[in-house]
């Protein structure tokens, strides 16, 4: 099975207090920010690696290609993906501010047409833009089925048919999807039994984890020799302009930090209605 996993570098969400806005308020500046792989993408990469390996023997039985769109230094994020176990990387050079969900989906469409993967597995959203659109756009452009917010993926025929459980506000829906398909994942995809590929023994449990696997030293050394292809939107024949323009940014107001204690539920309701004005 061949899986394409788009990964994006984002400002470290644990250091959100370092996020600053440019003087004219038109952009979020990247100065002094530490970059991390978007956590949702990291979980998707973990799911893709589990789909393409024998979890018990750790041998690879498929191929994972990671692709990132961004400035040249986004290659560090690709290397991280390769160190985790992906086979190849593709960097599509681009400026962050010239990208939106539509442009990203168009670029990914071209990559998919070139690579012909059995699946595209990606994070349901990124923690910076939070737009939650790329997976659905991409499926639409490709004419492929899409399963969003997957909490489990089961296949035993190399991705041709997939049984996917989707997370819904009201519960969970189980779908049967014919590949090739686009899947976006939720954090529950990291559950020890969430991914079954017919190769890893059914009773095998991955360790409990809050993120993707850590890159081993051997993985890091091996990543050095793995190929990373560099290309650009223009070279791929994508000539799309962002449809979204940001007018202004501002930081949320500082919290006062004060705590008000109330004596009764009635007083609480009164304060929420009259002071906080949230009821």
């Amino acid at each position: 099975m061949k899986i394409l996993v788009p990964i994006k570098r984002v400002a470290d969400p644990d250091n959100a207090n370092k996020v600053k806005i440019s003087g004219d308020g038109t952009e979020v500046t990247s100065e002094g920010l530490e970059w991390k792989m978007n956590p949702f993408d990291e979980w998707s990469l973990e799911a893709a690696l589990r789909l393409t390996e024998d979890g018990k023997t750790k041998s690879r039985v498929g191929e994972v290609v990671v692709v990132s769109i961004g400035p040249k230094d986004a290659v560090a994020t690709i290397r991280q993906g390769l160190a985790m176990g992906a086979e190849r990387g593709i960097l599509v050079e681009g400026e962050d501010k010239k990208l939106d969900a539509l442009v990203v989906a168009k670029i990914l469409q071209k990559i998919v047409e070139k690579e012909n993967p059995d699946l595209v597995v990606l994070g349901k959203q990124t923690v910076d833009g939070d737009s939650n659109l790329v997976g659905t756009y991409l499926a639409e452009f490709l004419g492929w089925p899409v399963a969003n917010y997957a909490t489990s993926i089961r296949t035993s025929d190399d991705g041709k048919t997939l049984t996917i459980v989707r997370e819904l506000d009201t519960g969970a829906a189980t779908l049967e999807v014919k590949g090739p398909a686009v899947i976006t994942t939720s954090d529950r995809i990291l559950h020890p039994h969430a991914v079954k590929n017919g190769v890893t023994p059914d009773d095998f449990a991955y360790p409990e984890s809050e993120g993707g696997r850590y890159a081993s030293l051997k993985g890091i050394m091996a990543a050095k020799k793995k190929p990373v292809e560099e290309t650009s939107a223009a070279a791929l024949g994508v000539d799309a302009a962002p449809q979204v323009s940001y007018v202004s940014f501002k930081l949320p107001p500082a919290r006062s930090g004060s705590t008000t204690f109330v004596e009764s539920a009635a007083e609480l309701v009164q304060k929420l209605r009259n002071e906080a004005k949230v009821l």
Partner: peptide, 17 residues
């Protein structure tokens, strides 16, 4: 080198948890 930097990043990710 790039591998040593990645090793440091991986070590931080692992140890901070």
């Amino acid at each position: 080198n790039e591998e040593q930097l990645e090793l440091g990043r991986a070590a931080r990710r692992f140890l901070e948890v």
